[in-house]
Amino acid sequence: MRASRSLLAALLVAVALVLQVSVLARLQLPGAVPDLLLLTVLGLALVYGHVGGCLVGFFAGLLADLAPPADHAVGRYALVLCVVGYAAGLTRPESGQHRSATVPMLVVAAGAVSSTLLYAGVGALVGDTPARGVGLGGLLLTATLYDLLLAPFTVPLVMSLARRLESDPLAGDGGSGTSAGTETTIGWLGAGAGTGLRTRAPRRSRYGRASSVLGRSARNRAGRIKGVKRL
């Protein structure tokens, strides 16, 4: 990742984590806590692709594992966000931008469900039980609902900030193609101009020269006839 990407990702992840811990976690909502950190990772992955989404997800999850009040094993959420960020980055189109908001919303819904399932599965594997005794069905429903309600205010903002630092590959190709086309046009014009300067004046055909000679002889003969004295 470039330095600009890393700085922006670190800033957005830090802001999202502070807001989630200090504001969203204190709302005491039923079920899951709105995962602003997950939405930030998804927004960056939709712009940076699968490699950038994987790296951002890993470091964001690791920061969440270390930030107090963490109630789970270190590396658990880092693994979850790493996998989710990689999968979300795979949905990035070749053009770099989605044509509609349907795909990002589907990615958010799938990310909320998959992150909850992965978090619960990894916790079961390592013997790390959740702090609150909430059923898995309730966690899935509330996590998806909260993330979908929060996504329209978060994901577009994150994606727009990330795209400001991105150079559009299509625009670059188009710009180079335009410049190449301009250079080609100038080359063609220059070649034509040079050819025009080097081209000699068109020669007269033999018929044109013969007709001019005949015309002069006819005029001379007419002059001589007019000059002859009449008998």
Rank of each mutant, 00 (worst) to 15 (best):
R219P: 07
L90W: 04
A120C: 09
G187C: 08
V103Q: 08
A45C: 05
L117A: 11
G174A: 14
T129W: 14
Q97L: 15
M1R: 02
T182Q: 09
Y77D: 08
L90N: 01
C82A: 12
T185D: 14
G190A: 14
P202W: 06
V107F: 03
Y207L: 09
G175Y: 03
S95L: 13
G192T: 15
V18L: 15
H50F: 15
G31H: 02
T142W: 03
T102P: 02
L150G: 06
A70Y: 02
A109V: 10
W188V: 13
T184L: 15
S211L: 15
G111A: 00
A201R: 05
T91A: 14
G31K: 02
F58V: 06
P93K: 00
G85V: 07
R163G: 00
R164V: 11
V107C: 10
T185E: 14
V13Y: 08
L150A: 12
P69V: 08
V56A: 09
P68V: 03
G61H: 11
G57H: 00
G137C: 02
L42S: 07
S167P: 07
G57Y: 00
D168V: 05
A110Q: 06
S100V: 10
E183K: 06
P152I: 00
G123E: 10
T154M: 08
G138Q: 07
A14E: 08
S205I: 10
T102Q: 01
G43Y: 03
S205L: 11
H72N: 06
G215E: 13
T91N: 05
Y146C: 10
